[in-house]
Design a protein around this nucleic acid. Structure first.
Lengths: 173, 173
DNA sequence: TGCCAATAATAACCCTGATTATTATATCCA
DNA sequence: TGGATATAATAATCAGGGTTATTATTGGCA
């Protein structure tokens, strides 16, 4: 039905992402977790106790967006919000038993879908697609930080806190 | 800041699309047209007089989504809605002088941004990215229609009308 | 010490997109 | 000819994402 396929990379990319997300949500209506929530839990599970602002910067989301997500996810029993003992402004986030249990099966389904989306592409082509998208994301993140990527002073970045090196270590991998 | 880059194609794709869109909207706040509206006008300009349902199926969007868009765009003077003389349920859509005038400059800016997003990729890599995304979109569209792509009876498809061949001709290219 | 700038979270509001349900027509066919 | 069926558009409602502005705190520094 797409008689006149997109000739522009940008719109093609946006369309692909939307279609993928739509399919995911359609196929997982029985699951008590959306794709966005899955992504958040996946990140959080590797960074238990992190604050919302830091989580936002990991996900390249606005802090407000994360705040709303956490609201809903707390209500759904997927996340726990605990007062940070060292900072009365901040809350620490933790996954719950429920969300941890959902992580593996949801990832499974997601990967199956991602695979279906790539039917017809060779492994070489898939790797190329993956690598190219990583470049795109890196370009857009860099540009987001400042005009000159080298000039990446912390305060300039949207909602991101200057992060201590040991914290960075926790986050890596 | 993305210390732990996405290892999953799907989330990488969704992230790339979101970042791209965000940058676009940020850089075009002075323009009286959003990226979604640009895409709609681009399609409509090649299919003047089309109905909302048909436009929705061209864009792979739900009819309701298009309906709301048209509401806002009519209010913004970007689209005209005319009663279809042959079908009292339907309205025909037309671009306006205003939206036609915006099409070229907006496309220009969009292409510039898309180009920036691809910095670091060779032309060969860009072509591969483009081709791979087209495959992904095709896979997801086919799967959306029905389990078996061959079994694509019209009534099964979300909101899409069975379309006369001459109309298809108009839409192509 | 005491004030001012940076930060964490969030409220209010807008756009995009989807799902479900309605209403008004149009069609098809018995 | 009529009635079942399909289609066009849209109202209501929900999730995802963003921007701007507020409120508490924290922290640095004069």
């Amino acid at each position: 039905m797409k008689q006149d396929p997109q000739t522009s990379l940008g719109f093609l990319l946006v369309d692909a992402a939307r279609l993928l997300r739509r399919r995911f949500e359609q196929e997982n209506r029985d699951m008590p977790m959306t794709s966005a929530q899955l992504q958040i839990i996946a990140r959080l599970s590797k960074n238990e106790g992190i604050g919302q602002a830091a989580l936002a910067s990991l996900l390249e989301l606005e802090p407000m967006t994360v705040s709303r997500h956490v609201d809903r996810m707390v209500a759904a029993g997927l996340v726990e919000r605990v007062q940070d003992p060292n900072d009365r402004r901040a809350r620490q986030l933790f996954t719950t038993e429920k969300s941890r249990a959902l992580l593996a099966p949801m990832r499974e389904r997601a990967n199956t879908l991602f695979d279906e989306a790539q039917v017809g592409l060779s492994s070489k082509e898939r790797e190329a697609l993956f690598a190219a998208l990583q470049v795109v994301v890196r370009n857009l993140c860099a540009a987001d930080a400042s005009a000159n990527p080298a000039d990446d002073r912390p305060g300039r970045r949207t909602g991101s806190a200057p992060m201590a090196d040991d914290v960075k270590q926790d986050i890596l991998s």
